[in-house]
């Protein structure tokens, strides 16, 4: 187990270098960010040259990458072009997005798995069909529609909640955005759980357990559900990464100043230190989430062992 984790961690190093380099090149290849700082007019060449020197933009790309990576290892992610350290942006954005992601994941797990179990055990019954229909509906309606609609109805029309989340983003204000964000994945979790449960319900070990005289309830929770969760956990693992990075639409609709928004703003303003810095952290989050998922397999299915 320990050796397996170490091996996995070592494998992360080339993946990390490769992804960050690709992102770096892509962001820097887009154009000259210094031009964008001058607004709707021609930049004055002397000032532009000074700015380029400050952000190392006058050096070849590979050298910029090496300099950048060197700084990262000392904990310096550079400054955004408005002079704010990227670490400061991160320390503000990640907690907010993390909170949002946790809310979304919790909603997904509780509601998604519960619905999945109920429908999986009652295949073909009215409950099953109606939940399936609903998930189909949720999957086909894009987030910006559900998001803006919910915001308009609850925030403007009925005035139950403030439509925009305040900068501190307390959990209470994040419930609705979290629900909107969770909806899509929730539908997938339901469907995955349902398929997995209904398949395993006929498995030999379930029959054996029932034949031994175990109560139905215990068989369902300890044997059936546990074994059926593997595909769901895989999905949730990758979803953690998606929720951290891909909450862009939801974050913009509800004025949540999290990772997605910072990334978006970084891209719009061609603020390469912000974009590369955030994506670098996200790469690490993705890698770690995948590692944890793999380790969870062993917990869920005793047949899986890591050596």
């Amino acid at each position: 187990m320990g050796r397996y984790v170490i091996r996995r961690l070592l494998q992360m190093v080339p993946v990390f270098l490769g992804t960050t380099f690709l992102i770096f090149v892509m962001v820097y290849a887009v154009g000259d960010p210094v031009n964008a700082m001058f607004g709707d007019r021609a930049p004055d060449p002397a000032t532009a040259a000074q700015l380029r020197a400050q952000f190392n933009l006058d050096k070849p790309v590979w050298m910029q990458y090496v300099l950048y990576l060197g700084d990262i290892f000392t904990g310096d992610f550079g400054n955004a072009f408005n002079g704010q350290p990227v670490t400061e942006l991160m320390s503000r954005a990640f907690p907010v997005t993390l909170r949002l992601a946790v809310i979304a994941i919790v909603i997904e797990i509780i509601i998604g798995i519960a619905l999945g179990v109920v429908t999986g055990l009652r295949r073909g019954r009215p409950v099953d069909s109606s939940v399936l229909m609903l998930t189909l509906l949720v999957i086909s309606v894009p987030t910006f529609v559900t998001g803006t609609l919910a915001q308009y109805l609850l925030g403007v029309k009925w005035g139950w909640i403030p439509p925009a989340v305040s900068p501190e983003a307390p959990v209470g204000e994040l419930l609705l955005p979290g629900l909107v964000l969770a909806l899509l994945s929730l539908a997938y979790v339901t469907r995955l759980t349902r398929a997995s449960i209904s398949e395993n319900a006929r498995a030999d070990y379930v029959r054996t357990a029932l034949a031994k005289g175990l109560p139905r309830r215990r068989v369902n929770t300890r044997h059936l559900l546990r074994n059926s969760l593997i595909p769901v956990v895989t999905f949730l693992g990758t979803d953690v990464g998606n929720l951290m990075a891909g909450a862009l639409v939801t974050e913009r609709i509800f004025n949540i100043q999290g990772v997605g928004f910072q990334l978006w703003q970084g891209i719009v303003r061609q603020n390469s230190p912000t974009v590369v810095g955030f994506v670098t952290v996200l790469v690490i989050v993705f890698l770690l989430a995948n590692l944890i998922v793999d380790l969870l397999y062993a917990v869920l299915d005793p047949r899986i062992r890591y050596g």
């Binding site: 904990g75 400054n79 350290p85 670490t87 320390s91 990640f94 907690p95 909170r99 983003a169 959990v171």
Partner: peptide
């Protein structure tokens, strides 16, 4: 100016999450 430690950013992240 920018030489704040990354670890600090993460540490803070957790603290803020819990507090909030």
């Amino acid at each position: 100016r920018g030489a704040t430690r990354v670890t600090w950013a993460f540490g803070c992240a957790t603290v803020v999450t819990l507090a909030a």
